[in-house]
């Protein structure tokens, strides 16, 4: 179990989280949904220890992450980018699994947006950390690619058994996983925390901005 206890985070005078508490089950996908400014990315950054905060996070340990921007090293090939974070990764097999078998020796600038996203996702899955954080991993991708990658994320999660925390502002994406969904409101308030929530309910929750 990953536990966030009494988390308070401020940017200057703005309080993003105040005495925030959350428990996340291991070995499943948890989607955190919310509008811009609700603190979704900050939450992931706190778990990844990329930003300071007061309070306690336990059970997180070493993490891997898919960032909003791909953050592939531009002067390293796809293969070298994956080996940078895990020297023992089976790069060929992993690339094959996402239809990128011919991209092994390409540089990031030679990849399309969709290809770069796939590389960023398998790079994160190739890392041995049991907890994977995904910060809007499918933003700006076309619909068909988005859903094929959602399917791939589900498949990789179930084969690796990793705990995945995915942040999104897309109700379709969130509903697709049919797992636990947490909806955050500005100020770090949880207005929904349920499993298997329909797209309609999620939309209404976000529109009303109130707990249901």
């Amino acid at each position: 179990m990953i536990s966030l206890k009494n988390i308070t985070k401020k940017y200057g005078d703005k309080t993003v989280f105040h005495n925030f508490n959350l428990d996340i089950e291991e070995n499943e996908i948890t989607v955190i949904l919310g509008e811009s400014g609700s603190g979704k990315t900050t939450l992931l950054n706190m778990i990844a220890r990329l930003t300071d905060f007061s309070g306690e996070i336990s059970g997180a340990g070493q993490v891997s992450m898919v960032f909003q921007r791909d953050r592939l090293v531009p002067h390293l090939t796809v293969r070298e980018n994956i080996l940078l974070i895990n020297e023992n990764a089976d790069v060929k097999r992993m690339l094959e699994s996402v239809g990128l078998s011919k991209a092994e020796n390409l540089y990031p600038k030679e990849l399309s947006a969709g290809m770069a996203r796939r590389v960023a996702i398998i790079r994160a899955f190739s890392h041995p950390a049991p907890l994977l954080l995904m910060d809007e991993p499918l933003v700006n991708l076309d619909l068909s690619l988005k859903f094929s990658l959602l399917e791939k994320i589900k498949e990789l999660q179930s084969t690796t058994g990793k705990t995945v925390i995915m942040v999104s502002h897309d109700v379709k994406e969130a509903a697709y996983f049919s797992g636990r969904i947490i909806v955050l409101k500005s100020g770090g308030e949880v207005i929904l925390d349920k499993k298997r929530v329909s797209e309609k309910t999620l939309t209404e929750t976000l529109l009303n901005g109130q707990s249901i």
């Binding site: 990329l50 992450m65 960032f67 921007r69 974070i85």
Partner: peptide
Amino acid sequence: NDLNEMCKVFGV
């Protein structure tokens, strides 16, 4: 700096 953060997260 984004790449530095990436390295930090992955424990490079």
